[in-house]
C-alpha cells in the first residue's frame, strides 16, 4: 500500500517524539536500576517462576519479531526506526526476566537452557501480512501486555517484593510507550482511510491471539497460573474498548465492521476459499 508524504512525515514525527522521550526519561539498566541486593529467596514461589518463564519466552522471540517487522516497515523511516528501538527495549525484558529466574534460584541454568532451546526450536511468523493490520495488532498486543505486567507490578508491590516490583515497573512502562506509538500510527491510518482501517481493526480483533499461543511450551497449562494472561473479557474491557475511545471511533462502529467481516468470511468459506488477509 502506497504511503503518502503526509503520513510519512507524521510517522517520522511520532517516532522522533517516542525516541526523544525514551532517551530522556525511560532508559534503564538491568543491573543498576534493579535493587538486586534486596532479592529475598524466601519469597520464591513456583507460580512466580511460571509467570516469569512464560513472559521471558514470549520476549525471547525478538529475533523473529524484528526480522519480520523490518521487512514490513523498512520503507517508512519513522516506523522502521521505531522497530529498531522497540527490539532493543524488548530484548532487555527477556534479559531481566532471565536474570531473576537464575539469581533467585527459581530455575537452574540447565533448566533455563532447556527452556530456551525449546523456545528457539520454533519460529514466530507474522500473524497478519500488512503494515496496517500489524499496527492494529501491535497496539492491542502491547496494551494487553502492559495490563498483564501492570497487574504483576501491583501484586509484587503488595507482597513487598521490591525486586519484582521494580522489574515490572520498568517493563510495563516500556510496554505502555510501545502501545502509545502504535496507537498514534493507527490514528494516522484512520485519518487516511477510516472505513478500511476499521475493517482491518475488526479483522485483527476477531482473529487476535497473544504471541505466545502455539509457541510457548505447555502454554495452555501455563495460562491456568494466575497472572500469566488475561481473559478474553479483560482483553475487551482493558484493551479493545479503551483503545477505541482513544482512537475516536465507537463500539457500535466496530460491531458493524465485525459483522461485515464475519459475513465476508462466511461467504468465502461457503465458496471454498480461505479467509482473506491471514498470514500463512
Amino acid at each position: 500500500m502506497a504511503v503518502s508524504a503526509t503520513t510519512r512525515e507524521k510517522t517520522y514525527r511520532a517516532y522522533m517524539e517516542f525516541f526523544d522521550k525514551a532517551e530522556r526519561n525511560r532508559r534503564w539498566h538491568w543491573l543498576d536500576d534493579v535493587p538486586w541486593d534486596k532479592l529475598d529467596t524466601t519469597k520464591n514461589r513456583e507460580e512466580t517462576a511460571i509467570c516469569l518463564e512464560t513472559f521471558c519466552g514470549v520476549e525471547l522471540y525478538v529475533p523473529d519479531y524484528t526480522a519480520n517487522g523490518f521487512n514490513l516497515t523498512r520503507e517508512i523511516f519513522g516506523h522502521a526506526w521505531f522497530q529498531a528501538n522497540w527490539g532493543y527495549e524488548e530484548s532487555k525484558h527477556a534479559l531481566v526476566f532471565r536474570e531473576y529466574l537464575l539469581r533467585s534460584g527459581l530455575r537452574t541454568l540447565e533448566q533455563y537452557d532447556d527452556y530456551e532451546a525449546k523456545i528457539f526450536a520454533k519460529k514466530w511468523h507474522l500473524p497478519f501480512p500488512t503494515r496496517r493490520r500489524m499496527t492494529c495488532y501491535g497496539a492491542l498486543q502491547e496494551l494487553a501486555t502492559y495490563q498483564i505486567y501492570a497487574n504483576q507490578r501491583e501484586k509484587y508491590k503488595a507482597e513487598g517484593n521490591d525486586v519484582l516490583h521494580k522489574i515490572f515497573f520498568l517493563v510495563s512502562r516500556d510496554e505502555s510507550a510501545h502501545y502509545g506509538f502504535y496507537r498514534r500510527v493507527l490514528q494516522f491510518f484512520f485519518e487516511e482511510d477510516y472505513d478500511g482501517t476499521l475493517a482491518d481493526l475488526a479483522h485483527v480483533v476477531y482473529h487476535f491471539r497473544m504471541p505466545g499461543v502455539g509457541l510457548i511450551p505447555e502454554y495452555d497449562d501455563r495460562l491456568k497460573t494466575e497472572g500469566v494472561g488475561i481473559t478474553s473479557q479483560q482483553f475487551l474491557s482493558d484493551a479493545v474498548l479503551p483503545m477505541l475511545r482513544k482512537l475516536g471511533t465507537t463500539r457500535p462502529d466496530l460491531v458493524r465492521a465485525l459483522r461485515q467481516k464475519r459475513l465476508e468470511e462466511q461467504a468465502q468459506s461457503a465458496a471454498g476459499g480461505a479467509p482473506s488477509g491471514q498470514a500463512a
Partner: peptide, 29 residues
C-alpha cells in the same frame, strides 16, 4: 467469547434501541 458477546450486545442494542455504556458492557459475564 468476548467478540461474540460484543456482537450480541450490538444486536440487542439495535433491536431495543438502547445503548449500554462500554463499562456496563464489559462487565457482562
Amino acid at each position: 467469547e468476548s467478540v461474540c458477546a460484543l456482537e450480541m450486545v450490538g444486536y440487542v442494542e439495535d433491536k431495543l434501541n438502547i445503548l449500554f455504556s462500554d463499562d456496563e458492557m464489559s462487565k457482562i459475564n
